[in-house]
Amino acid sequence: MSGPLKFRVKHLYKTLLHLGKDYPKGYEFFRSRLHASFLRHKDVEDPAEVEALIAKGEYVVKELEALYMLRKYRTLKKRYYDS
């Protein structure tokens, strides 16, 4: 794996690390699991397979953003609104 694909994987990892700072169970919990899951696929060389894994990672990014948004919305709703 090299070139643009490698850059995208690194970018994905950095994005996920950044998102992990807000993770409810703490940054360290998130980081160790994130690191482990990237390490699990360290030997993947096939570009199509890497592509699929990046897509999976990007899906996780979207899910995390949605999780944080909902969590904030629900907390505020509970705090300030009756219904």
Binding site: T15, H18, L19, E65, Y68, M69, Y73, L76, K77, Y80, Y81
Partner: peptide, 10 residues
Amino acid sequence: LRLNEPRYAT
């Protein structure tokens, strides 16, 4: 609260 859903600062 219900005006919109703020985006995440990437």
